[in-house]
Design a protein around this nucleic acid. Structure first.
Lengths: 215, 215
DNA sequence: CTGTATTCTGACCGGATGTTCAAGTTTTGC
DNA sequence: GCAAAACTTGAACATCCGGTCAGAATACAG
């Protein structure tokens, strides 16, 4: 790590803290995804981050705190990277983009997806809380948008909750269960083309079910 | 793993063993699903099964052995309960039944689904081995059947691997991530009607993408 | 430079957990 | 009915892991 040659003294005040926290969070996310939440030890994170274990605990009091911080960071990155539905662009464009962005996330940041899935499947209480706070309202908004598109005859009525549940399931599966996917595709590593195939197939399926795409 | 080849005299010979192993496996599956694989302790399993901890280890040398046995039992139940594709019944009937059976599994035996998903997401080595042994061949067979249906004009050509990956993803998500589903549907518990809704939506989507269902 | 705040870190602790063992009890084969 | 095999079980062991802490080192402000 090279330091910036010129940096005002004020910035240095919080420089160390921010840098170390970022290092710890990134390392922790990677190891959580690789080893599983419970099997990951603070020692592993410390070793891979090149810090003593006690230093990890200096920034994050407990392992649970650290996991929460990792999840919050993941959620923040997600919220920043997923576009909002924009009514005027219509259902075809929005759904296509949504699926594309979700699959890009699975491809480009599989660790984040996997950690979140692990926390969800283990029903860590604060993850369900996150979902309530961030996604339930979001879903309501998108539901209203879809309703208006239906009214305008731009698409057929669909069970919106199940629509999103299945989109998430399909797109996340390529990150969360990549081991399974690799076995079934008989590949050592998933390539961008595999994600493109999935993108095309899933998009077509969703658009068809919304009565947008022609058969 | 291997049963005694001679069942001649009386079944009491292996009665105790079989009964206790079944009890342990069922209990372990439930707790693995509830607590996660790593957080589950042999003590928990012992307590809930009403046995001393040392007795668990009498039947299963290590926790890893026990987990393997649980997974093998799950896989066996799955293979027994999922019907084979039968070419003469055609794609609509087979796909509809396949999706229905998978969702019934998620509804009626969520623990099994969840344990398997946990093992998969944690990439337990022997699970990937199971997949290779049991599902890859299976997928090949189903692919050939679908190919013949395509030739006969009963359905459109589809990327079969992605078709099955997405069907599995959608149907399993209702068991594996039931916490998430409950939050989004805003329900305390999933009812049969929720699974019926999912069944209808997913089936329609898959049939449409195969060019079977009319829009 | 000096004092204060922040960061670093080795050593340690308490508790939990998988596993073993040896001594008991029950069941089985004959 | 009796010896062997199978099963049961309390107790102990070795290990590992999250978390603490006191004091050293470093960065910062004035």
């Amino acid at each position: 790590m090279s330091e910036s040659p010129k940096r005002s003294k004020n910035q240095l005040k919080t420089h160390i803290r921010a840098q170390n926290q970022a290092l710890i969070l990134e390392t922790a996310e990677r190891i959580f995804a690789r080893q599983g939440l419970a099997k990951t030890t603070t020692q592993m994170i410390a070793d891979e981050a090149g810090l003593p274990k006690a230093n990890i605990h200096y920034y994050y009091r407990s392992k649970k705190d650290l996991l929460e911080a990792v999840l919050e960071r993941i959620l923040q990155l997600w919220l920043d990277s997923v576009s909002q539905f924009s009514e005027e662009l219509g259902p075809r464009h929005n759904l296509t983009r949504y699926i594309s962005e979700k699959l890009d996330q699975s491809r480009l940041n599989p660790s984040a997806s996997k950690v979140f899935a692990m926390a969800l499947i283990g029903e860590e209480p604060f993850v369900l809380e996150f979902l309530r706070r961030f996604f339930v309202d979001e879903l309501q908004k998108e539901k209203q948008t879809l309703d208006r598109w239906v009214e305008q005859g731009l698409m057929k009525p669909v069970p919106v909750e199940h629509l999103f549940i299945t989109i998430w399931a399909m797109t996340q599966t390529y990150a969360d269960f990549d081991g399974q996917v690799k076995v079934l595709l008989q590949k050592e590593q998933l390539e961008e083309s595999d994600f493109d195939d999935a993108k095309q197939f899933i998009t077509r399926m969703i658009l068809l079910s919304c009565g947008i795409e022609e058969v």
